[in-house]
Design a protein around this nucleic acid. Structure first.
Lengths: 161, 161
DNA sequence: ATACTAATGATAACCATTTTCATTATGTGT
DNA sequence: ACACATAATGAAAATGGTTATCATTAGTAT
């Protein structure tokens, strides 16, 4: 199932209902916007986009909706270090859309990658098993990010010298 | 060299000086507090500890000092999702003190682990090499965190059912 | 339709972090 | 030691993302 098919479809309705949440225009619009986005949106980014379609949806609702969708695991919430949280759609099927991030510490640009993911995930799975056992810790999620300088910023740094 | 030997030693002075920073009581005290801490301290935690020794050091200075020490790579800054940054001393020698985190999404407890680190780091190094080449991205750092429920919170969850 | 209750928007509050700016302390050249 | 240039500092205010409050609206089971 593709992201775009979720919109207006029974898919979200079912997810919301079975978690005890009601179905509203706002919630559909917000998931719609995030599904279609090709970058990692902040709450305000989402608000602006949603608001342009449904002007009677406020920033407060955006925050509240993001919170419940993160709790429902429909969305992932990230901190890339620029003081505002970013959201992206969670993988729809096993593995699909799963990726990690390269974060430029200079310009805050974020590159998604899904090369090398298979090896990473395999090792993570093994690691998780060992950690779960040793620390009695039930792992539900992981975060892998590489920090450094993107091409542009690294070139600027060299020129400046 | 052990952490505790850094305090009052020429070590920090050299690091500061060669980066163009001046040596002050505050900076020494702040690094001292973080070196001796066995948990991940927030800026306010650090402020309170430093302030009890040197009452004329303000929160602003703590923030400023943390910022430059992160930039100097003396400290690592983390976000464990509770709205305030946490700081810990960076590894002193190659690999020493290096660890990753298990973060409880319920109570925000953080467990450091350094089992499995060797395999993880080996894979990361390989991954970094590939990513650097493919995306022209100069990687200087990485972040690995596992999220889930610590023993206590998982037990509570089960009981509640 | 009705009633019950969750969801919402506007506003204010919150709170970690930054900025401002006048004052103080540090390192350098003498 | 001394003075100078300038970085560092503290107090206070500002900033800005996020959360709480509360009266109103809207979804849903009956």
């Amino acid at each position: 199932m593709h992201m775009r098919n979720r919109i207006g479809s029974p898919w979200l309705k079912g997810r919301l209902r079975c978690c005890g949440y009601k179905i509203t225009i706002g919630r559909e619009a917000i998931l719609d916007v995030i599904s279609k986005a090709d970058t990692h949106l902040s709450a305000e980014d989402i608000y602006i986009k949603v608001h342009s379609m449904c002007p009677n949806i406020g920033l407060t609702t955006v925050y509240r909706t993001l919170e419940i969708m993160v709790k429902m695991r429909l969305l992932h919430k990230f901190d890339f270090g620029d003081g505002r949280a970013r959201y992206e759609i969670a993988k729809s099927e096993e593995g699909e859309n799963h990726h990690h991030h390269l974060v430029c510490t200079n310009c805050n640009r974020v590159i998604d990658y899904n090369d090398f993911i298979d090896e990473e995930v395999r090792l993570l799975k093994e690691t998780e098993k060992g950690l779960s056992r040793k620390y009695n810790f039930k792992i539900t999620n992981h975060l892998i990010q590489f920090y450094g300088l993107c091409e542009k910023c690294e070139n600027l740094r060299i020129k400046r010298k």
